[in-house]
């Protein structure tokens, strides 16, 4: 049974090997002539305007929070979907209540303007 997961392990190995390999190759083969400009953080070729360590807007936090809430909702949908036929009308009703409650959450969040992006 455990051997079922062997492909994942192989995949993991390839990922790690590729990441490490590319870095090592670049370090070994690539020329290295550091200048002050090259040491700057990469910002699409433009000289960075300010430090990257500035505070983010609280909007990010609200968005992340709402993302979690609806992410959890989708997690509950998954086991329901696999046996939706066995659950018959009961499962449909229960899931309907669940989704309706979270739909209310969506309406509330929308109406309060939390989805509007303002800094």
């Amino acid at each position: 049974m455990l051997s079922d997961y062997a492909p994942i392990l192989v995949f993991l190995g390839i990922c790690v090997a590729f990441g490490v390999g590319v870095q090592a190759l670049s370090a070994a083969v690539g020329p290295r002539k550091p200048t002050p400009e090259k040491e700057l953080p990469y910002e699409s070729g433009i000289v960075p305007l300010e430090s990257a360590r500035r505070r983010f807007s609280v909007s990010f936090y609200v968005t992340a929070m709402l993302f979690i809430i609806f992410d959890v909702e989708s997690i509950f949908l998954f086991p329901w979907a696999t046996i939706v036929r066995d659950l018959k009308i009961f499962g449909l009703v229960e899931m309907g209540i669940f989704i309706a409650t979270l739909f209310i959450a969506l309406i509330y969040v929308w109406a309060k303007g939390a989805l509007r992006w303002e800094f």
């Binding site: 409650t101 209310i104 309406i107 509330y108 109406a111 309060k112």
Partner: peptide
Amino acid sequence: FVILLMLDL
């Protein structure tokens, strides 16, 4: 509770 949330809007 749900109705109040909607009424508030």
